[in-house]
Design a protein around this nucleic acid. Structure first.
Lengths: 198, 198, 198, 198
DNA sequence: CATGAATGAGTCTTCATTCAT
DNA sequence: TATGAATGAAGACTCATTCAT
């Protein structure tokens, strides 16, 4: 089947990536074998290696995909309609993350957690995670400035530092809410609102 | 009545566990091989297997040890001297965590992150992490009640939910601060104080 | 009657064979992959398989081509002008072989050596090499008879056995001279002349 | 089975090496799989990898072992009893090589040929082969000087260059005699004697 | 008890060849 | 005919665990 379109190549890549994400959601990066991904994707080993140079390459692609969601999500909130406060943004965020988790049958938050963990020992993943955190921070700064413009952020303080803390709530939510089932989006958002209420 | 004293057994276990934590800090649970741990501990494989049933058992012990630090730390803050507010407690926490990271040559936060990640695919680690999160939450509730008693928490809201959010800040700090080097304890604490200032 | 002319087919075969020889010169028969040959030839895999039944077939063609050079070379010397002695013939031979090596960017002697080695485990290559050695022997006998006729071979002895020894010098020259760089054509020829001088 | 003696380790290494040589004699370096060597040695894969770092390491050891024979052999001839001439030395050499081939069930000459071929694409083998050729050349120079001392080498000429040619006869004998069965030791020695007779 | 050599199932990856387009 | 994506059977190597000494 030669001379396939770019769309076909792209679809195949997604097919493999989706399969790999399901596998990693179940078993983590290291316990996911290429054989698992191959079986889950429905392709042959040769085919998978035609789209990804190796397991390392696949892992990087998975990490990029899983983390990409956060920054996008937050940016949409930042430029969205209605009055914005840190609390409303956080509420929207955790609900979106919760939805992503449900939609992916629980794979999404697990893959994200694995990516963060992998960053602790893999330089290339570290860079992907670091770049992502910077993007999310920038998006949070946008949100804070928008809140300020809406007249909803009368507290002083360095917006960048505040953004760091706001980013920091996401790992905690993913851990408690999505992995451990100890908290849901509404409770988390309520708790945040209480803490930051004036 | 074993031939060697309990103290001796216990010291050996610690020796192995320390070695294993250094290894896991470098390579994560899955890339750490028993051979690494054996070499790092200076013992023989037979000896290590005499103290831990297998790798799984060792991993559980490492996770328990690494996570134990958090609850202990927070509890001490909760019952400590001086006026307590969420912000002062958080400040003390992140500084203590930062110190733990430095003291362990960076291993501590990495091992913690690996434990959280492992919880996503390993039921037994999930239980350890879950129990730990519950303990930390209880400690945060203690802190909140202490703050209330000190007259420093005039906001209403469910203390348990607030505690969930406060726990949630730790994974974010570990990720950004200790793994990525994107924030330090003081900045993080300042950001938190700004967000929660009245 | 094929759709493309025989000349075209033949040119394509040569194109592939040349590419394959460059590859084998670099990596040997077994480390040369069909993908290497395909890339080096500038054709598609389907095309290459249209001209050669498979790798085995290609290897046989390469071996035949590389070894063919020797017999041709020696025959030309045997029927050439001027007085012929074993020493002059040998001198001409090693110089010609040296030139072939340089012209092929070093590929020729390496491919020859790989063919000899392959003969040790591949019956079909063994037959090709055996036939080639017989041809070269015959050519050396021609040379010896010519030398005798020229009055330059006053030693007695079985010409066939002498030819076997003379053939035997070629592998040694290829090994030392062209692969290892330990001897050049002139030195080798001088050494031979010294050994056989009367 | 811990704490084994050096002799045991050494014996195990030889056991593996012997097995590997038989395999390489049959299939060459590249078609010999580690599984073949493992099966032939009667050990487990883990055991084999405990004695050799990998296939590359094993190949180097095989090459060293197979080639080592030549230099030793020739040196013994050089310092041996009785009158020495290039022809007697050559006769002794080819007979010894023939015997080695028979004793190893034909593996020895094949392995040697594979080592020479491998030198064309493998830098490390090239160095082993190069060092070996230098040793053999030195031994041939010894032989020539001994012959001179015995009054059996009245021809002038650079001894080193002559030695290069004499080394050069070995690859040819191995190829024709042992691989192709086209010549035996006596015929080859006779041919050499005729060529160099005065 | 301690040792560390040995085991062997399990991983990642390659590559000759085919065949739908 | 020509193309090159897809196949899948090997192959090299690792590593948790055991057990003879």
């Amino acid at each position: 089947m030669p001379k396939v379109s770019d769309a076909h190549r792209s679809a195949r890549r997604e097919q493999i990536l989706d399969a790999a994400i399901r596998c990693v959601g179940r078993e983590g990066f290291h316990r996911t074998t290429m054989a698992h991904v191959i079986a889950e994707s429905g392709l042959s080993s040769g085919a998978v290696y035609g789209y990804f140079k190796g397991k390392e390459d696949l892992i990087k692609a998975i990490a990029g995909r899983a983390l990409g969601g956060f920054a996008e999500l937050l940016h949409e909130i930042a430029i969205g309609p209605g009055p914005v406060t840190p609390a409303t943004a956080m509420r929207a965020m955790v609900h979106e993350v919760e939805r992503l988790g449900v939609d992916s049958d629980g794979a999404f938050p697990k893959v994200v957690m694995h990516a963060w963990s992998e960053a602790a020992r893999n330089q290339e993943i570290l860079e992907i995670v670091g770049a992502n955190v910077d993007q999310v921070q920038a998006a949070w700064v946008e949100v804070l400035e928008r809140a300020d413009a809406d007249g909803n952020l009368r507290v002083p303080g360095d917006r960048a530092a505040m953004a760091r803390v706001l980013i920091g709530l996401m790992p905690g939510f993913v851990l408690q809410g999505l992995l451990l089932g100890k908290v849901d989006a509404t409770t988390y958002a309520d708790g945040f609102e209480s803490l930051t209420s004036h």
